[in-house]
């Protein structure tokens, strides 16, 4: 019982230290708003390492590729990315315990809110291919960051094409 209390306290402390802490001002007390999943990531050091090469991390395996790229204001998955999405669908079919988040992103041009919606459509386009191949929605969550989390920071097409993207992120990564 004490252990449970202690670990809850530890999780709270970790949450309080996290960079995702949000402060409200001027009068509200500082609150921790950490999602539980993130604290999990911080306490995973005790897990045993697999000796075998993780196919998701093996640079020679197509599963190590995670990003789908798009044209401006487009959300269809181009043919060149389909084998990669299909490989992940196959992996998820064979590993029912594995879950992914598909994160849609946009370049900085245009409306921020429209880009939130467009990023969602991009993530959905990946989900739909996986669905067709039999992956259950229980294993896939689609989210959108719109244009808010650009991977490349410059203000021309060399960065924009990098930011029009869906990422397949496995839970725990």
């Amino acid at each position: 019982m004490n252990k449970i209390v202690l670990s809850t306290l530890l999780v709270s402390l970790l949450a309080a230290c996290s960079s995702q802490e949000v402060k409200e001002q001027p009068k509200a007390p500082v609150e921790s708003r950490m999602p539980a999943a993130d604290t999990g990531a911080q306490t995973s050091g005790a897990q045993t390492q697999d000796v075998a090469v993780n196919p998701l991390k093996d640079p020679n395996n197509i599963l190590s590729k995670r990003s789908v790229y798009y044209d401006f204001d487009k959300y269809d998955v181009k043919d060149e990315f389909k084998p990669m999405v299909e490989a992940h669908a196959k992996y998820l079919g064979g590993n029912k315990g594995a879950n992914v988040a598909v994160q849609g992103n946009c370049d900085e041009r245009g409306s921020r809110e429209y880009n939130v919606a467009l990023g969602h459509k991009r993530a959905e386009s990946v989900r739909k291919i996986m669905n067709v191949l039999g992956v259950s929605d229980k294993q896939i969550e689609t989210v959108s960051f719109g244009e808010e989390k650009p991977r490349a920071a410059c203000h021309d097409e060399s960065c924009w094409k990098e930011n029009r993207r869906s990422d397949i992120v496995y839970q725990g990564e």
Binding site: S19, Q20, V22, K23, E24, Q25, G146, E148, K149
Partner: peptide, 10 residues
């Protein structure tokens, strides 16, 4: 400042 965060606000 009404709200401060290390994640995007829009």
């Amino acid at each position: 400042t009404v709200l401060a965060s290390n994640e995007p606000l829009i």
